[in-house]
């Protein structure tokens, strides 16, 4: 008893402190990694963006917002923004429509189980390829002497070879199409999971109330899927604005600059012109745009919770 009484206050305090610190110690490895891999590079890039050329210049000086002004007033930057908005907007809308259509088909009781399994495998295929494979595959398919032109030719739909990726009139649409093809399975899988989670009794109740198939879709399916749809759309917006490899490996931002995106514009500044400060400024602009989208995503997630 005496012993306990003597050691009790410091021991309790130590235990309290330990209990208090334990969660932080568990978090420490993750926090350290996040600081090292995310915070430090972001702070460095922001720092680079307000100096005259870093890395190639051994003694860079601060230039304030000069790099931002130069990037934002560059006409190619405006083209890149326009192209990115088109590429992202059309890709996300098409991902949603196609993903939902295929998910509905795969969830339909009208389709047999085996047929459903086969189509599920076929529909998900594009998602299994890496970007490099997708780029090479579509470069071959869309080659003027490629399979697409051959099929269109024998179907009588074209009378001369279309240079899908090399023609300034078709290049942006062509890479947007490739991106749609590559990205819809992610929507499809997520929406299919959502569809399978909708209680059957909601449809039964709607049918009892005399709702048509369209009304059931519009008033039951869509409201039930809305949280998934909003999350997916926001995430896809963020990912698609950052798409680089596909564009670089198919068109390199050309012909002329009709497929120039914010990502290729930034890459060229850094690795072709060695203008690391300008590239940093451009990257920070992209970061801010992504943060705005991320903000809406987080707000939506919070509202869901």
């Amino acid at each position: 008893m005496q012993q306990t009484a003597a050691s009790s206050p410091p021991s309790r305090a130590r235990r309290g402190l330990r209990r208090h610190l334990t969660p932080y110690l568990y978090l420490l490895p993750t926090v350290l990694l996040m600081i090292l891999l995310m915070v430090v590079p972001i702070v460095m890039v922001i720092g680079y963006s307000v100096q005259d050329n870093v890395i190639t210049n051994p003694n860079p000086e601060s230039v304030g917002l000069e790099n931002y002004v130069e990037v934002i007033t560059d006409p190619v930057f405006h083209t890149a923004v326009r192209n990115t908005v088109y590429f992202t907007g059309v890709s996300v809308a098409a991902h949603l429509v196609l993903g939902l259509a295929f998910a509905l088909m795969l969830n339909s009781p009208l389709v047999g189980r085996r047929v459903r399994a086969v189509f599920r495998m076929i529909y998900v295929l594009p998602w299994l390829f890496t970007v490099a494979i997708i780029a090479v595959l579509w470069r071959l398919l869309l080659n003027p002497n490629g399979v697409v032109n051959y099929l269109l030719d024998i179907a009588g739909l074209i009378d001369s070879k279309v240079e899908w990726l090399a023609n300034p009139d078709t290049a942006l649409h062509a890479i947007t199409f490739i991106n749609i093809w590559a990205g819809y399975p992610f929507f499809m899988i997520s929406l299919l999971a959502g569809l399978q989670g909708i209680p059957k009794n909601l449809y039964e109740a709607a049918r009892v109330d005399g709702a048509s198939a369209f009304h059931q879709f519009w008033h039951v399916t869509i409201p039930q899927l809305r949280p998934i749809i909003i999350s997916m759309v926001l995430l896809d917006f963020i990912w698609t604005t950052q798409q680089f490899a596909l564009i670089w490996m198919t068109t390199g931002g050309g012909p002329i600059n009709v497929t120039e995106m914010l990502s290729t514009f930034t890459y060229k500044l850094a690795f072709s012109r060695y203008e690391y400060s300008m590239a940093s400024a451009s990257a920070v602009v992209v970061l801010v745009l992504s943060m705005i989208l991320a903000f809406f995503y987080v707000q939506h997630q919070k509202a869901r919770d």
């Binding site: 080659n143 990726l165 090399a166």
Partner: peptide, 8 residues
């Protein structure tokens, strides 16, 4: 010239 020159 061979077609597809702008991305060749």
């Amino acid at each position: 010239i061979s077609p597809g020159a702008f991305t060749m």
